[in-house]
Simulated scan of single mutants.
Amino acid sequence: MFITQKSLPRRTVLRGMGATLALPLLDAMVPALSAAARAAVRPVRRAGFVYIPNGAVIDVAAHGFDAWSPIGEGRNFELSTILKPLENVRDRLVVLSGLDHPMARSMGDGAGDHARGTATWLTGVHPKKTEGIDVRAGTTVDQIIAADYGNETRLPSLEVALESPERVGNCEVGYSCQYLYTISWRTPTTPLPMENNPRVVFERLFGEGGTAAERLAERQRDRSILDWVTGDIADLRRQLGASDQQLCRVHI
């Protein structure tokens, strides 16, 4: 038997025919005879939050049926139409019902349910009604988790969306677009931008290039470019308004 110290990178992906497939944690990703190989492999802990802006078909009075809520309680429940695809993992599934977010109600602020719902979902905080840059909500639970466990992954958190994120101005009845186009807040006054370009998401995770060496070289090149343009960035900020400066601080 021949044993080597070679192992697959944990971020190895299968690539071909224009598709990319991520691999789960494999034994081959742990170097042979290493301390990690002799110990039980502990998968990286992850948390994900998927927001459905307009909710699910759950209002029996309005629709005549409930397509979301399971039938029954405890272990012997029947999955609903929407949740049926999760049948294979039902033993690891917990569906919570009867939850409410009172802070998403108007509380005297008038219309703006969509903005309030998005801003309140992971913060539990009633957002400040404003069209300007003085937005305020709360730190979201994903960022609280990232602060404790983010060092286990290359990126502490990753914010992705389907829609193109519009981040400037008034998007709903006096509410800033920043309330509507992100569900993640690093601090009560720092909404994190969402990314909807799959290529950008992939490159943030793995870097550009087809091999690990190429991606490392690309990251080093990008770092050099960033160092080179630091002076230009400072000059640019001096020419921008307060709103654009805030966006620059988030992105750069």
Rank of each mutant, 00 (worst) to 15 (best):
M1D: 06
K6I: 03
S7M: 08
S7F: 14
V13M: 02
R15E: 11
M17S: 13
M17D: 14
M17E: 12
T20A: 04
L25F: 12
L25A: 13
L26T: 06
A28G: 12
V30L: 06
P31A: 11
L33K: 03
A37E: 10
A37F: 15
F49M: 03
F49K: 01
F49G: 01
Y51E: 02
I52P: 00
D59S: 05
H63V: 01
A67I: 13
A67H: 08
A67M: 09
W68V: 14
W68L: 13
W68Q: 04
S69V: 12
P70A: 14
P70K: 09
P70Q: 11
E73V: 04
N76P: 00
R92N: 10
R92G: 08
V94Y: 01
D100E: 11
D100K: 15
D100W: 15
M107W: 14
G108C: 07
D109E: 11
G110N: 04
D113Y: 13
H114D: 08
A115C: 04
G117A: 07
T118N: 00
T118W: 08
E131A: 11
V135L: 05
V135S: 04
V135Y: 09
T139W: 00
T140Q: 05
I145L: 09
Y149W: 12
T153N: 05
R154E: 01
L155W: 12
P156F: 11
S157N: 11
V160K: 01
E163V: 14
P165V: 11
P165L: 13
E166M: 14
V168M: 08
N170E: 15
C177N: 03
Q178Y: 10
Q178R: 14
Y181N: 09
S184A: 07
W185E: 04
T189K: 10
P191H: 02
M194C: 02
E195L: 05
N197L: 05
E203W: 12
E203G: 10
E203Q: 14
G207H: 04
G210E: 02
A212R: 06
A217H: 03
E218T: 10
Q220G: 07
S224E: 15
I225M: 11
V229F: 14
A234L: 15
Q239W: 10
L240D: 05
L240N: 06
Q246G: 13
